[in-house]
């Protein structure tokens, strides 16, 4: 059974590229453009194996989503890759403290490299 990734990304163009690439790698994809959509999917009890999380979102920032996820018992250990164009040490530290598997700066990675990181983390 294919693993499911929730992509939280407000830029629909980037969201589409990320989703296409990861679908091609054999993953099932759920997408959310803001926190409301993200929590709608999470609350629907859809099985999520990993979250790919942008930090700059239109409603709340990704850190708040991360904080909320880590407060939910069922989601406490879900792997999260932060995929953002923020790159300051304070952002990396803050996200790391909240419990993430990777902090990737979008402009430094190709989609192939992203797919490899995902595969290393949750398998094919």
């Amino acid at each position: 059974m294919a693993k499911t990734i929730l992509i939280v990304e407000d830029d629909t163009f980037l969201q589409g590229l990320e989703a296409t690439k990861l679908k091609k790698e054999g993953y099932d994809i759920q997408v959310a453009s803001d926190s409301k959509e993200a929590f709608k999917i999470i609350d629907s009890k859809t099985k999520i194996d990993m979250i790919l999380l942008d930090l700059l979102l239109p409603d709340v920032d990704g850190f708040m989503i991360l904080e909320k996820i880590r407060q939910e018992k069922a989601l406490l250990t879900i792997p999260v890759i932060v995929f953002s164009n923020l790159s300051e040490e304070k952002d990396i530290k803050r996200a790391t403290k909240l419990g993430i598997s990777e902090f990737l700066v979008k402009s430094n990675f190709t989609l192939d490299e992203l797919a490899k990181k995902v595969k290393d983390l949750i398998g094919a």
Binding site: D11, F13, L14, L17, L56, N85, L86, K106, S107, T110, L111, D112
Partner: peptide, 20 residues
């Protein structure tokens, strides 16, 4: 700078798709 980076990321990924 973050907004420019986002646009450049998209370009990077698309060009790489062409190259691959």
């Amino acid at each position: 700078a973050h907004q420019i980076r986002t646009a450049l990321s998209a370009l990077k990924w698309i060009i790489k798709m062409f190259l691959d």
